[in-house]
Nucleic acid binder design. Structure first.
Length: 424
RNA sequence: GGAGGGUUAGGAUAAUUGGUAAUCCACCGGUCUUGAAAACCGGCGCCUUCGGGCUUGUGGGUUCGAGUCCCACACCCUCCGCCA
């Protein structure tokens, strides 16, 4: 949610930002709404002041055992007016908020301008694609050959877009989670959380999933609970409606959660294998920072996610998303794309964003350094998507005989195992 | 799911038959001091068009006026039931 004051004081800047995002939203009605709302608030407050004064008078008269019926009768009218006005103010507030909620965040000046992903900017690449002297298989064939991935039985249990890992496969997934959390907590200074996987509507609204993206999430029947689509949701809401100390910033949090997404609208996309699932594991990175810190912190958060890929020796590239490709809340986003030999392409494995004060305003997360509370900046990024990391390990470290050599960093998490051998 | 008790600022406690939130601790600033402590003064919740307005778990209701009365809900504690 943008600051209404910014809209009021500098509507041209907002219009220019919308233009860059290729978003034709008209802000004139919002400004008109704001103006009439403020007039209503002022009028209501004036009447309220009169009411408070008169109430004091009535109390005095009553104490002196004098007749107050005339004053009470007069106040009855004022009271009715105040009630009617407050009702209007409430409506105007709700209306204004819902209008403001559909305005996206303003892109940072360093974000490449363009309509879609074709305008994304390559920032850097790391490592090299493995030189395979044979036709690489994709993770489905590799995983099936190793008897660690069983998509048919997953479909039997839950339907399409689920996976069933077995034996070393499930241990590899668990090991990846451990490896990522250990790295972020011990080397990057993040505090680990294990949040609820079911959250309330209020929490979903706080981080911007509701009402706009209700279609993308799963909800529990007959209860006000949603399955988390990402750990970003519970992590954001840890400090919802709080004022944290400025001395504590930046706060760096990490959490593993499963993520549940309906992927409505992605039918026919990535149908093979475990690239796009209704349930997947992810280790999330999250920061609450001051406004001055947030751009440096975006770079270091991205570097923290990259460190995982580097330790695993996986070739990847970093891309700055264009204004047209960025998410609603982000002011700037870097995607990490890992090389997948089985797909013969780079695939997103992490998305790191600075949401500036956009999410904080909506979730009402502030900090105090002087007298006035200010909104924090929030940043989030995957560190990393576990399922896709598993895919990347399988595809990049596959051998001609169908085995997979485990990267050294993972071996301690696999009981010293060095190679996944194909089943006989 | 059932029964009972509770929720007032960061913490702890007040508030006549309903009269418009008081006090202590902690914390911050100032005076004083070589420095510190103590003492004293001011802050110590939010918004503001600087007139004020809002704030007693949340949302309604009654009333000129609600921490107080009524209704619904949330959360916490204790016990029963169920359960890993």
């Amino acid at each position: 949610m943008l600051d209404i004051k910014l809209l009021r004081d500098d509507p041209e800047a907002i219009l220019a930002a919308l233009e860059r995002r290729n978003n034709p939203l008209d802000i004139a009605p919002i400004l008109a709404l704001d103006e009439s709302r403020r007039a209503l608030v002022y009028e209501a407050e004036q009447l309220r002041a009169e009411q408070n004064r008169a109430s004091g008078e009535i109390a005095k008269l009553k104490k002196a055992k004098q007749d107050a019926s005339a004053a009470i009768a007069a106040m009855k009218e004022v009271s009715d007016k105040v009630k009617a006005l407050n009702e209007q103010v409430k409506q105007a507030n709700d209306e204004l908020r819902s209008q403001l909620l559909i305005v996206p965040n303003m892109p940072h000046e360093s974000v490449p301008v363009g309509a879609d992903e074709s305008a994304n900017r390559l920032e850097r690449t790391w490592g090299e694609a493995p030189a395979l002297d044979f036709e690489p298989k994709d993770h489905v064939d590799i995983g099936t050959g190793l008897d660690i991935l069983d998509l048919d039985r997953a479909a039997k249990i839950s339907g399409a877009r689920f996976s069933l890992l077995r034996g070393a496969g499930s241990r590899l997934s668990r090991g990846l989670v451990q490896f990522m959390l250990d790295t972020h907590t011990q080397e990057h200074g993040y505090t680990e959380f294990l949040p609820p996987f079911l959250v309330s509507s209020e929490t979903m609204e706080g981080s911007g999933q509701l009402p706009k993206f209700a279609q993308e999430a799963f909800c529990v029947r007959d209860r006000d609970l949603w399955l988390v689509p990402t750990a970003e949701v519970p992590l954001t809401n840890i400090h919802r409606d709080e004022i944290v100390s400025g001395d504590d910033l930046p706060l760096k949090y990490t959490a593993y959660t499963p993520c549940f997404r309906s992927e409505a609208g992605s039918h026919g996309k990535d149908t093979r294998g475990m690239l796009r699932q209704h349930q997947f594991d992810k280790v999330e990175l999250y920061k609450f920072t001051t406004p001055e810190q947030s751009w440096d912190e975006l770079e270091s958060l991205t570097a923290n996610a990259e460190a995982i890929l580097q330790k695993l020796g996986l070739h990847y590239r970093v891309v700055a998303l264009s204004t047209g490709d960025m998410g609603f809340s982000a002011a700037k986003t870097y995607d990490l794309e890992v090389w997948l030999p089985g797909q013969d392409t780079y695939r997103e494995i992490s998305s790191c964003s600075n949401c500036t004060d956009f999410q904080a305003r909506r979730a009402n997360i502030r900090f105090r350094r002087d007298k006035k509370p200010e909104f924090v900046h929030t940043l989030n990024g995957s560190g990393l998507a576990v399922g896709r990391t598993l895919i990347a390990v399988l595809e990049n470290y596959q051998q001609k005989d169908g085995s997979v050599v485990l990267p050294e960093a993972l071996r301690p998490y696999m009981g010293g195992l060095e190679v996944l051998e194909p089943a006989q």
